[in-house]
Design a protein around this nucleic acid. Sequence first.
DNA 1: CATGAATGAGGATTCATTCAT
DNA 2: TATGAATGAATCCTCATTCAT
Lengths: 208, 208, 208, 208
Amino acid sequence: MPRPTEATREEVASETRQRLLDAAAEEFAREGYVGANINRISQAAGFAKGTVYNYFPSKHALMLALIDETAAAHVDFVLRRVEAEPDPVRRLKQFFGAGFAFVERNPARARVIISALYGPDDEFKTQVYEAYKLLLVTIAQDILDAGVAGGDFRPIDRDVVTALLMTVYLGSCSQLGPGGKIWLDPSQVTTFALDGIRLRERPRDDEV
Amino acid sequence: MPRPTEATREEVASETRQRLLDAAAEEFAREGYVGANINRISQAAGFAKGTVYNYFPSKHALMLALIDETAAAHVDFVLRRVEAEPDPVRRLKQFFGAGFAFVERNPARARVIISALYGPDDEFKTQVYEAYKLLLVTIAQDILDAGVAGGDFRPIDRDVVTALLMTVYLGSCSQLGPGGKIWLDPSQVTTFALDGIRLRERPRDDEV
Amino acid sequence: MPRPTEATREEVASETRQRLLDAAAEEFAREGYVGANINRISQAAGFAKGTVYNYFPSKHALMLALIDETAAAHVDFVLRRVEAEPDPVRRLKQFFGAGFAFVERNPARARVIISALYGPDDEFKTQVYEAYKLLLVTIAQDILDAGVAGGDFRPIDRDVVTALLMTVYLGSCSQLGPGGKIWLDPSQVTTFALDGIRLRERPRDDEV
Amino acid sequence: MPRPTEATREEVASETRQRLLDAAAEEFAREGYVGANINRISQAAGFAKGTVYNYFPSKHALMLALIDETAAAHVDFVLRRVEAEPDPVRRLKQFFGAGFAFVERNPARARVIISALYGPDDEFKTQVYEAYKLLLVTIAQDILDAGVAGGDFRPIDRDVVTALLMTVYLGSCSQLGPGGKIWLDPSQVTTFALDGIRLRERPRDDEV
DNA sequence: CATGAATGAGGATTCATTCAT
DNA sequence: TATGAATGAATCCTCATTCAT
């Protein structure tokens, strides 16, 4: 058992790091990576400029850490809910539902991810892809493959549709209205996406 | 009628302006707006730094002009082809087909528009919305409304679906592989989008 | 024939560069390379901070340019006077005499060279060696080799003695009293050095 | 007599201080005073940053202490050996021999002294002069004065030659090859210096 | 119209130093 | 005594912008 002071010290360091990441998320979301200002980040976190550099070796590394931390929380949040669902159709709905919920709870983080994806820095893009790989695999296998096998979905190109679903998801997320609310109704987006892939023997009228 | 020298002078000025815009498109696409460098732009266009300021009052104004010019060409290119089609379904296919064609011919311009949309500057976003308004209206009225009225599409929320179609289009455009090729097959994207809205009494097998 | 304005522009640029180098010499001499401040250099030269970067890509490059320029002037100044002398002994005297004269006229430049040689940056050292190579070769060949061949000097290790002569010269130069005067009398230094190598009437063989 | 714990405490403190000085010597030698990093020094010594400040009030004071400690060891090492010799010529040889031996055993310390002498900080220079005063006095009196009085050396300006001998010594020391070896052979340097002052068989009076 | 020298605000980063534990 | 988190002054460098030619 570590000495109390040791435990406390680590907690404080962890707490500081977290506050810096939170402040960085806000700043990067509002100003973009290049426009973000390290001094404002540390001030917003309640520290002096230098403290950022006690935790992250550079602005670039801070961004990478933020991407990693955000992606880990995001993937974890969505996957838990997706995998709790019994069948592919419900899972797809959860993918959108939980995804939008995460974005509404963490609008700044979401913006950072999206701007990393559409911004000019290839290293950020790669980092995002890596960090979200598990989510993409789950969509492809546990939702699309399973859905096609089970007769819920039409035969489709798994990778193309995975990309399209992520595209629809990310695109919807970035259309935030005032207050950070997602302007598109999740259920409408889900319906649209589901109808793009669902098998259609007979009319259905049990939608969300 | 202006004197020949006048005409020549205007032509030269127009030519200079065009070369500056082309160079700016490449630079903004590669570096992002904040990372773009006015000196590099002028050098790439074959001029000295100061020349940019003879044609555009600021870097910001240059970006706005580039958005306008690109959007005008883009909208014109797509609308000509969309409106040449006789029915909503074909028009929607043309929206994607012509849109992807424009992006493949003008990858730098496309990147600029997309980064403006997903970047932190709200003024750029507004400018893009304004410049593309005519395209959005055409989708909403001449494709969706017409398609619903004609029984091609299910009753849908026109504005939501317009947003979703643009989202799918833009998202697909930004997934460029090496060489600027769009990675997603236009016909697959079109099929996906069409199936999301099409009315489905009976199975159809006449797709793209 | 270039246009007058062109000629003037080049003259101004050359003049600016020279003023910056002069100011840099003073600053580097007084503060050392690391302690030197680019802003102070440009201010002392009568320009704003950024102007330095219109002429030199970095502080490091400015230092290298200063070493080169100083060494070229130094070597030229000394070699002209050394080579005007008819015999090795007089040439050696001129080496010290002209060398000390250059240092007294350019104390800041001399300090920069010396601090480059004794400072921690190996690239600066290499640059100094390269820039003074011609002078070292002249000492070794046109003074020492010639003097040994002509019976003025004892048989000596040419390279060792070249190094020792430079050492004595540089060491003496760095012992500046108030006002930048070299504290050691050139003639005393010359006598000391000459006696270290001159042929004696009878051989002695009791050395270390 | 202090209590054992007291004695131990002092030993530990002394040991710590010594390790810090050793690490500082390496760092100052490699990076120069301004480029040296207090954190690296403490890490290399096996302590945290703050510990340096428990032993030295500032980086500047650490440098001064290092100069003092090095000079004291250096002067002691050389003087012991010089004063063990019976006559001025042997003493002068020992001055160079022991001096070079000290430098080869303590290359980092030697570099620090030399960079202090040729660097921009006058306070360091003064400190070096003060700390080496006893050595200079010994050269001037116990070697040069004694040698002139005993007929070994020509009548010379004692202070000038003292300065020249130190110059030759320091200059030779700073020409370190790979591995910290002094590149100039001590015996050659000694011969050169001795011949510069030794009495010749017959007077010459054709000098400068 | 084209030029490019000059400007100076702005920002990332370093690091000696302090001090509470 | 040892620690290391926090500090903030200091500095190199970038680059949009101006303007005289």
